[in-house]
């Protein structure tokens, strides 16, 4: 993709709107080059992509207005590793519930994602989520007007659930979707997994 060697991975953070800086900080702390992505040329220069939290309606509109939606869809089909958090998870869902009129997603995850599944901001919360697949103790998870994964296809692996069984973290191939915000609680394991997926993809390329 970017012609990088496996040792030099560059991760892009979709920088149309939202918590871009926090993801860039996490990626740099993990020793990876991180750069904002706002144009198709930016996208072509990265080995993996993070779609951050923000407003999914705004990310959708701006990606279409600036011709970034189709290149992202093509990159996802082409095997680009992508981590979507909160609004980013919504953007990765093939199906969404609670959509705004005309709202679209990039898709790629065979999953139905419900927007704003917990109610207004007053219901936003912090809790712990076990993600055994990524190793280590439970993660501290911050849910902010968060979505939830309502159902998944057979190709999707569930990585994490709330106590009541609702799905909040998934993986399908090189796509990772998380309903909460690892980037604002100092949690690095999803980003490390994304980098590992990018190394694997670059190695094969």
């Amino acid at each position: 993709m970017a012609g990088s060697t496996p040792a030099q991975i560059t991760v892009g953070v979709l920088a149309l709107q939202g918590a871009v800086r926090e993801h860039v900080d996490v990626l740099r702390r993990l020793g990876t080059e991180a750069r904002p992505v706002r144009t198709p040329a930016d996208l072509a220069s990265v080995d993996a992509l993070v779609i951050p939290g923000g407003e999914s309606t705004v990310i959708d509109k701006l990606s279409r207005a600036f011709g970034l939606d189709e290149p992202i869809r093509a990159a996802i089909s082409g095997g680009l590793p992508v981590l979507g958090t909160c609004a980013g998870l919504i953007m990765l869902g093939d199906r969404i519930q609670g959509r705004a009129p005309g709202q679209r997603t990039f898709g790629g995850l065979d999953a139905t994602v419900r927007r704003n599944a917990f109610g207004s901001q007053g219901e936003s919360f912090e809790t712990d989520v076990a993600v055994p697949e990524l190793g280590g103790p439970s993660m501290h998870a911050v849910f902010i007007r968060a979505p939830i994964v309502e159902d998944v296809g057979s190709a999707v692996t569930v990585l994490g659930r709330l106590n009541d069984g609702r799905i909040v973290a998934v993986q399908q191939g090189r796509l990772l979707g998380v309903a909460f915000h690892p980037e604002i609680s100092g949690e690095h394991r999803f980003h490390a997994r994304l980098i590992a997926l990018a190394r694997e993809a670059a190695g094969r390329g």
Binding site: A15, L16, Q17, G18, A19, V20, R21, E22, G53, G54, E55, V58, C86, A87, Q121, G122, E123, S124, F125, E126, T127, D128, S138, V142, F143, I144, R145, N163, H181, I184, S185
Partner: peptide
Amino acid sequence: MSTTVGTARVKRGLAEMLKGGV
């Protein structure tokens, strides 16, 4: 595991998600 609402992190976090927006 405990679940808490209305923490400073949750409150400030929504503002973080609004960044770059109008």
